[in-house]
Each structure stands twice: as C-alpha cells, then as structure tokens.
C-alpha cells in the first residue's frame, strides 16, 4: 500500500465541505517534502509582507488561482467563486494592488499565517500535488479577523525551479458571509 484513499462516507453535506475523495501519497520523500515545504513557507512570507512582484513570479504561465465559495468541489465554470483567476487575471489583481489606490489594501492588512499538515497527493505525471492547512491572522482598519483554509497546490518544476501551476484555497467558512478578503490569500 503506497496510497491512502480518503473515503468520504456520510451525509452529502459532509462531502460538500471536505470535498471529493483524494488519493494521498504514502511513500515519503524527505528531500521533496523539505523542498516543497520551504517553497510554500516562502510563498506565505511573500504574501504576508505584500511582496507582490516576487509572489507573482511564483506562478507558471498557464496558472489557475481559485478560491471557491459555498463548498469545496463546486464547478467554477458554473458557480460563483470568490476568486477564479487565470494567469492574466492574477496579473491584473497584482497591478491593481500595486497602484496604491486599492483602498481595501491601503494601508495593507497586517498578516501572519501559519501553515501545517502538509500531505502529498499521488500524481500521475511530474506535477507535485500537495495539500496543507493554513490559519491567517489579519488586522486592518476594521479590526482583527481570523481566516482558516485547506489549500491544494499543483507545483511544477520549470528549468529546475518550482512554480505554482494551481492554487486552490478552500476557506472553511466559505458558505457564510465573510468580510472583505483583498489581501493575497
């Protein structure tokens, strides 16, 4: 047994929140684990300190950045998502932030995020698929907000360097009314 298939038995509502079954990798590669963890820690730091250019440079050319609403495995081609950005829309998001007139980020949110529970998913090609949990503390003009999410990444090695091809952020409370989320999540 090298894999661990997550079976989601139980009521539909649970499937809605934890998502479809995923196949977790059981073999453990300490070097890859370390490299991926360092990559994601760095991504988190760039987000926390609003280093927009360095964060944007982490993406591949055909990237997808997805923050669904109202569940985990919704159909983003049918249902509203909080963010459903292709590569050019990621660039637009960054350009807007960099104007200095993105009022909801002027002044920028003060942020610290903690990332944990890294687990690899099995991958049928050279892409690296990894899940992790994140908690983000945000404070801004309105006050303090706690965010929590399950993140899913597809990382790809391009010219020897890891890049993000896909990042999905499933906010745990994405079926509820949430405050403005204009920092990079």
């Amino acid at each position: 047994m090298t894999t661990d298939i997550q079976e989601n038995e139980g009521p539909d509502i649970l499937k809605e929140w934890v998502g479809k079954g995923r196949v977790y990798e059981k073999t453990f590669n300490p070097e890859l684990y370390h490299e991926v963890q360092q990559f994601i820690f760095r991504e988190a730091r760039l987000q926390d300190i609003h280093d927009y250019d360095a964060w944007e440079a982490l993406w591949t050319d055909n990237a997808l950045y997805w923050v669904p609403a109202n569940g985990t495995d919704t159909d983003p081609e049918r249902q509203m998502s909080l963010i459903y950005d292709n590569r050019s829309r990621i660039a637009l998001r960054i350009r807007q932030l960099k104007t200095g007139r993105r009022h909801s980020q002027t002044p920028p949110s003060q942020l610290a995020r903690v990332i944990s529970n890294f687990e690899f998913l099995t991958s049928s090609n050279d892409d690296i698929k990894v899940m992790c949990n994140v908690q983000i503390f945000e404070t801004n003009l309105r006050g303090d907000t706690m965010w929590a999410a399950r993140n899913e990444y597809t990382l790809r090695r391009i010219d020897g360097v890891l890049k993000m091809a896909y990042k999905k952020v499933v906010l745990i409370n994405n079926n509820k009314a949430i405050y403005t989320l204009s920092f990079l999540v």
């Binding site: 923050v67 609403a69 509203m80 998502s81 909080l82 963010i83 459903y84 829309r89 637009l92 998001r93 807007q96 993105r102 009022h103 909801s104 003009l141 949430i178 405050y179 403005t180 989320l181 204009s182 999540v185």
Partner: peptide, 17 residues
C-alpha cells in the same frame, strides 16, 4: 461578475471599505 464583486472583487472590496 466574479472579477468585480464579492469580498475579493476588484470593485466591491473597495466599495465595502
């Protein structure tokens, strides 16, 4: 619509601010 509205929207995040 997804680009414009909601908590992360290019427009509505700033209106709401």
């Amino acid at each position: 619509t997804m680009g414009s509205v909601g908590p992360a929207g290019f427009l509505l995040a700033d209106d709401t601010e």
